[in-house]
Design a protein around this nucleic acid. Structure first.
Length: 263
DNA sequence: CGGCATGTTGCGCA
DNA sequence: TTGCGCAACATGCC
């Protein structure tokens, strides 16, 4: 599921399902994901959902008493909506049942195969949330700020783009796509990039993120969402050269050796 | 069976 | 201090 775009879609769903509703039932079957059930229940039961926000890959459900529930989808997490009478999903880890003002009931289930996701109830914003960098959708992309970020680190440009404390929400898929779009070798040391290249990266983020949000909303198959990601050995959609794969930060990174050549 | 996977954290090492 | 490589986490899927 997770990258800024899929998390934003999850946010829209949760807002639709939960906003204005009152929590009537809470289950947390997996301590690894949600901690002990009791504190979660205490934080949510009887509370009304005021808003659902997103920053980077984190979701925040705000309650009318000032409490908040943070949700990270990890690698395989997702929220789905069911009826309260429906049996648990196969990989369900938690559920929040709510009653809307008109009396309509919903059962919102957290599903997560690998259980890397997290549910954290808190009374204030947690560091994982407050320490996030600029979010491309919420804050826009500023070329000068991006230039400062890139030049203040001596790291592969892809690592910088994926650093959540610097830019929030860019993961392996989006970083791969952004650099393909900008025609930049992902291994390029970030502080050697020149202004025109940085401008191309900024433009690529502004283009790729909203476009992928539309693609993901339309449920386009993943192979149509991305030009390079998971396409090693296949022809570059731009020039036909075989895409190559390297390992960077322990992640598979695909790029075109011809149009993403280092200058 | 082996290998790979959208994320994050923590450790050893240069 | 900074950055890199890698293992770990736990499970599904091809």
């Amino acid at each position: 599921m997770p990258e800024l775009t899929d998390v934003e879609i999850a946010r829209r769903h949760l807002e639709d399902w939960l906003k204005g509703a009152t929590v009537a039932r809470v289950e947390a079957s997996d301590e690894r994901v949600a901690g002990a059930p009791a504190p979660l229940r205490r934080a949510l039961l009887g509370k009304r959902v005021r808003a659902v926000r997103r920053r980077g890959k984190w979701l925040k459900i705000e309650l009318d008493d000032g409490g908040r529930l943070f949700s990270h989808l990890g690698m395989t997490g997702d929220w789905v909506c069911r009826k309260p009478t429906d049996s648990p999903e196969r990989l369900e880890r938690a559920r929040i049942d709510v009653v809307q003002r008109g009396g309509r009931t919903r059962s919102v289930r957290y599903v997560d195969a690998r259980r890397f996701g997290r549910l954290i109830a808190a009374r204030q914003d947690i560091p994982e949330w407050t320490e996030l960098g600029a979010d491309p959708l919420l804050d826009g992309v500023d070329v000068r700020r991006l230039e400062t970020l890139l030049q203040s680190h001596h790291r592969a440009v892809k690592s910088v783009l994926m650093d959540q404390a610097l830019l929030a929400g860019i993961g392996n898929m989006l970083a791969t796509e952004v650099l393909w779009h900008a025609r930049i070798d992902p291994r390029t040391p970030s502080d050697t990039l020149k202004r025109p290249e940085i401008a191309r990266i900024a433009k690529a983020i502004e283009t790729v993120v909203p476009r992928d949000l539309r693609e993901a909303s339309a449920q386009s198959p993943p192979e149509r969402r991305f030009a390079a990601y998971r396409r090693a050995g296949k022809p570059c959609p731009r020039c036909g050269t075989k895409l190559v794969s390297v390992s960077l930060d322990g992640r598979t990174t695909v790029f075109c050796p011809r149009c993403q050549a280092r200058s």
